[in-house]
Each structure stands twice: as C-alpha cells, then as structure tokens.
Amino acid sequence: MLKTEALSFSYDGSHIFTFPDILLQQGEDLLILGDSGVGKTTLIQILSGLLRPQSGFVEMNGTRFQNLSSKSLDQFRGSHIGMVFQQSHFVRNLSILDNLLLSLYLSNKLQDKKKAIHLLQEIGLSDKLNNMPDELSQGEQQRAAIATALIKAPDLILADEPTSSLDDNNCQKIITLLKEQASLTNAKLIIITHDQRLKDQFNTSIEL
C-alpha cells in the first residue's frame, strides 16, 4: 500500500507546491496529469524519497519515509521502487545486460543473469543484450531503461514522463509494457506526465 497525506514542498519558501493525497493498493495503477511547472517532478522525487517534503508524509508498505535515515531510504528505494525517466539514462560504459545486473547489485538482489536475459527477451531486446546503451534507438533505450527499473521486481514503479519524447507507436508500446510488467509482478504503477495521449489508458487519474 502507498499512502501520502498533505504533502507540500517549496524550493524558495515563497512558492509552495501542495499535492493531493494518494492512496494506492498493491497492483493498482495511477496516472497523474499536469502541465509544466505544477510540480510533477517534485512530486515524483518526494514519492521516491529523493526529496523530503516540507509537510505531510509518504508511507509505503507500512514504512514512513520520514522515519528512515537517508542511507536506509537509499536502500529502501533501491529494493522497493523502480524509476523510469523521460530521458533514459544508463551507465554508459556497461552493456544493456550489465546495466540490469548493476541495478540488481545496487539493490542488494541476486544477480540472476537468466532472469535478466529473459526480461530483455520479453520486451523485445533479445538481440541487444551486449550492445552499449548508445547503440540503441530512442524507443529501444526507453524499453531498456524500463527493464533496469523492473528487473528488481519493485513494489512500486514510478515513471516520470516516460512517453513524452516518443512517437504514438512507441508511446503505446511503452505504456502496454509498463502495465503488463506491473501486473505481472503485482506492483503499483504511478505515471506522472503532461502527455494527454495517456488519459484514456488509465482508470484512475489525478490532475495536478
């Protein structure tokens, strides 16, 4: 279960972002829509524990983020939360497969190579296992980035504008992929975006 209450944050003290409360059960999806400047990125960082809110709290699986030290929060995020960004980023000197293994290593999980290969095959990258990230197309990169987030079977998938830089075709593929994988591992999925194309794809959505 993911629960937030009365979250607010301010960068400079004068302009305060306030966010609606969220309650999400295991296996549920949520679309958060908002235009630029309404604090989408801020919210995703608070939800992932990268930023600490000025008021309110985030609670996940019974753990309140504010009660964790920054080190334990890093570990918690590593093992429970998978993140996908608008721009896909990788450790550039590692192959796609090694990026997945690194993700497993850093979240203290078993580096199961078979599982990583299987996942890459599932998302259609079976012939790119040993390619460097730079050698992939943008659509492929986005899929690979999702794989690095999913490989550790997180309880929560947080996607920040995952489709904004993709064409309609790729956009559809990515959303289907995210939904599929989330339901496969029974993970909660939150997508934060200004991309109106996604509006009809989700049952639950919030406007910021």
């Binding site: 890093d74 570990q75 590593g78 980023h89 450790v91 993700s103």
Partner: peptide, 18 residues
Amino acid sequence: KRRYELALMRVYGASRFQ
C-alpha cells in the same frame, strides 16, 4: 559527464559510500 550516471546509481540504491 557522468553526473547523471552517478545519480542514477543512487536511484538504483547505491549508497554514497559506494
């Protein structure tokens, strides 16, 4: 050049020490 890469590793769960 790798600033983002290091941040990404933190997101993956790397500690500062790592």
